[in-house]
Amino acid sequence: MIAEPAKAILRRERRLARLGNRTPCCPRCGETALVCLRLDHVTGHKRDPNFTEILCLNCHAKKHDQFQDADILMMREGSAKSLMIMRLRAAAETQRKQAEAFDHWADEMEKWS
């Protein structure tokens, strides 16, 4: 039961404002439940605070785990060159995982009659 619907509405609108999208959706798994979605910094907040995407909490956790596997650490780089290198690697890793997700969805779709 929602005890205070008006406050729930305000919380919802604040979330939507933070996400910057009135119909947010996780691009990896398709999750649409607002409470699960977050704004993720694709290459890391310190590397580029403006480059963001919406991810659900699960995919966000998986992504950071994958970054660690790929040795992309969320640390401030010492030089501009290394900053750019890590940005590109982080973005590439993200898109690799996205590509995997798209492949997976395509496979599922092929099974439809």
């Binding site: 039961m1 929602i2 205070e4 619907p5 008006a6 406050k7 509405i9 305000l10 919802r12 609108e13 604040r14």
Partner: peptide, 27 residues
Amino acid sequence: PGQPKLRVRTHTDFIKNVFWPVLRAGG
């Protein structure tokens, strides 16, 4: 989402927990 009964609120309660939250949400 489960409001079986009518709510009864004082004026202050209404202003604080209904009126302004709806408006602040862009309502």
